[in-house]
Structures are given as C-alpha cells and as structure tokens.
Simulated scan of single mutants.
Amino acid sequence: MKQINIPYRDYIGDYGSVVVRMHNKNKWGEDNQIKILLSGLQDDVAERYDIYKSIFNSEDIVGALGGGYDDDCKKALQSMYIGDSARVGEIKQHIRDIQEEDWKDLCPYCGINCFSGYDHYLPKGEFPEYSILAINLIHCCSTCNTKKLEYWKDDLDRGIVNPYLDDLSDVEYLLCGVNCNNGIPVVEFSLESTGNDVFDSLLIKHFARFDLLARYKDRSNSEISTIRDDIESYSGTLDLESLRTVLQDRYQREVLRFGRSFWKCALRKALYLSDDYLRMLVRTEA
C-alpha cells in the first residue's frame, strides 16, 4: 500500500470557521444552542487537536484517547461533519486535490474501487472531537467504509492501515499465484511476512477486515482481460520470452505508480513469471 499525501491545514481554523458560519438562531428564532456549545468547546478541542498532531507525528496514533464528553457535546461535535458546511466541503476537496493523480479517485484502503466518501480513521462515535479534522479523514470507497465501520484497533494494536502514516510501497508482502486450467488463468492471492511482526499483524487484520484477498481474486478476471487487450498489438509477433519482457516492463511501470504490493502489480508479476500463461498467450495470438 502506498502512502498518500497528508492534508496539512490550520485545523483549529477549520473548526472555528465551521462554528462561525452556523446560524445564530434556530428555526424557532431561539439562540442556536449547538453553536453556543461548540464555541465553548473550542479551547478544549484545540488541545485535543494538539494531542492528535503529536501522536500522529510520532506515528503512535494507537495512543489516542477519546471520551469525556456528555451526549449533548458528542452530538454537537458530530453534527459539524454531518451539517451542510462549505468549510467541511473545502476540507474534503483539499484531501483529494493534494493526492497524486493515480490516487485522487482510488480508495487507499483497498486499491480497487473509486472513492465515494470519507472514513473517520478514529471513529467519530468514539472521537467526536475529530469529526472534521483533516488528518483523521480518509477518502475511500463505500465498500471499505461499510466494512470498517467503527473498527480501527484491537486493544493496543492497530487493525487498519493508516494511508497517511504507513508506507509499505517498497515492501513485497502481497503475492499472487497463477495456474492455467483449460486455457483459463486462475489466480490466488496470499500475504507474506514483511519481516516486521508489527506490520505483519497490522496487514493480516487489515486484509481480513476488508476481505481483500477474495476481492482481489474477484477482480482479477477483468484485469487479466485488460492486460490481454493491452498486448493485442503484438499479436503473432512475439515469442514467449519477448512477451515476458513486454509484460515485465508494464509491471515495473505500475510499481513506480502504485507500489510493489498493489494488487494489480502482484497479478502482473505472477503473469509474466508464469510460463504456462505466456505459452497460452503465444498459442492464442499466433
């Protein structure tokens, strides 16, 4: 998984802007108690933002401490994200705008689906004070958002990769095997140790939570068809080793963009290393 760009902003400035833009009166002409409550919480939230930034920078986010708010405060803090605020929309847009082109619309949790919304890495149910904190918001797909829910750790160990903090792009931990049965390539994905027990545990939990090995397998047929279409221009002109070189070159380019253990890269590598698959292509294209 490739580390995505961190949305550095004036975080407490975002908070203050959302509060200031709230109406002073509710629809009954009474003072807006939510705005009053949030204004009173601003200094406390600023301190909590400083704590979050501190543990974020030290990559010790599992030490985050939430709680301490009554129900009214929780609901008010959560409403900042749910409410129709131009500043919240600006925060969300900024998160996507600063990403590399390949990752603007791609879910960093799975690398399969297009972005469709935002996940609170530290769940806003437990940590309502971080509901609009940019570094706590991950642009992701609806499938991953639904599967993650409020989960992010087990006891004192993280269970979800944080795309802002965890850079595993140069580590080859996702493997793919290919077998050709009656002219049909069948793939299986698996995880291999990174040599780091902490990362290994994190990846196992992350992949299990998002059901990634099965989802990658399900998507492989369409990707194999795409790869096949990509090499059609070489039809009948390449032998097995030349075809391997073409596919390997495509793989290396993808690695530069997405990292060694991006699922499509693992698949491409398995295909160019498979003599059975290459022989099948040569026979088919001949």
Rank of each mutant, 00 (worst) to 15 (best):
G66Y: 11
L278D: 10
S233D: 14
Y251K: 05
D119Q: 04
S169V: 01
L122C: 10
D275T: 08
D84R: 02
Q248R: 03
V178K: 08
Y251V: 06
E90Y: 07
K25Y: 15
S235W: 13
Y277L: 03
F199R: 03
K269Y: 09
Y8F: 11
K35L: 01
N162W: 01
I51L: 15
C144E: 09
S79P: 05
G259N: 08
P108F: 11
R250P: 03
K92G: 07
Y49G: 09
D44H: 07
S235R: 13
K35V: 00
L202T: 02
C180G: 02
M22K: 05
V282L: 01
A286T: 04
N145T: 06
K25Q: 14
C110S: 13
S58L: 08
E101D: 14
G111T: 03
V171G: 05
G111R: 01
Y118M: 10
L247S: 00
D119M: 03
L281K: 07
D60T: 09
I12R: 07
Y81R: 04
S39D: 04
L122N: 05
A76C: 00
L202I: 03
I91N: 00
E129V: 05
G117H: 06
V198M: 13
F199N: 04
K124Y: 10
Q3C: 05
L203H: 04
L273Y: 14
S54N: 11
Y216L: 06
C114H: 09
V187T: 08
I204H: 09
F262P: 04
K35D: 07
Q78P: 01
E232F: 09
H139F: 14
S17P: 05
A208M: 07
R244Q: 12
N181H: 11
D84M: 05
Y49S: 11
R215Q: 03
H23N: 14
G13C: 14
A208S: 08
S169F: 01
D97Q: 08
V282W: 08
N179P: 07
R158E: 14
S274L: 14
F210C: 01
L165C: 00
G125V: 03
L238S: 08
L247G: 00
I36R: 09
I112P: 01
Y277T: 00
G236K: 09
K104M: 15
N196R: 09
D105L: 13
A266F: 04
G83V: 01
L213A: 02
V255R: 10
G83F: 02
W28A: 15
G125E: 06
F258D: 02
L37Q: 01
S54W: 13
I51H: 12
I132W: 03
R260K: 15
L37C: 03
V20H: 09
R87L: 00
K205R: 06
L156V: 08
S193A: 06
N136E: 08
Y81T: 02
A270P: 03
Q99W: 13
N196E: 13
Q33Y: 14
P163L: 02
R260M: 15
S222G: 13
G177P: 06
Y81A: 01
K104P: 07
K147S: 12
Y234S: 04
